[in-house]
Amino acid sequence: MIPVDYYIILSAILFTIGVLGVLVRRNALIIFMSIELMLNAANLAIVAFGSVFESFSGQIFVFFVIAVAAAEVAVGLALIVEIFRSKRSIDVDQVSSLKG
């Protein structure tokens, strides 16, 4: 069996890539994908811990996270489409009428 450390290291790497993606990329969709990567990194860690502890609550939690992520996608994509309609761009640097 693969030791749990490997899963956790992989999930930490995925999480870091997600965070960097949010901070570095300027396209709203890619930022959004990076956020999903962060959530899935957490899911991986939870499932790995859950299987080591032989506890079901970890697995159940992952289902909740997946469901919530789907709800976020529904709202987030609607917002992005709405922005694209009015600005013809989803570059977050151009979404900057609020400043001060």
């Binding site: 999930s11 999480f15 997600g18 965070v19 949010v22 709203a28 930022i31 959004f32 956020i35 962060m38 959530l39 990194a41 957490a42 899911n43 860690a45 939870i46 811990f49 939690f61 996270v65 919530v68 976020e72 709202v75 987030g76 917002l79 992005i80 709405e82 922005i83 009015s86 977050v92 979404v95 900057s96 009428s97 609020l98």
Partner: peptide
Amino acid sequence: EEAGLKYFLLGAFSSGFLVYGIAL
């Protein structure tokens, strides 16, 4: 619209940290 998008992106970003914190 812009407020909604900004709130959404940063809110979702923060819940990413929250879930990973809970995982650890």
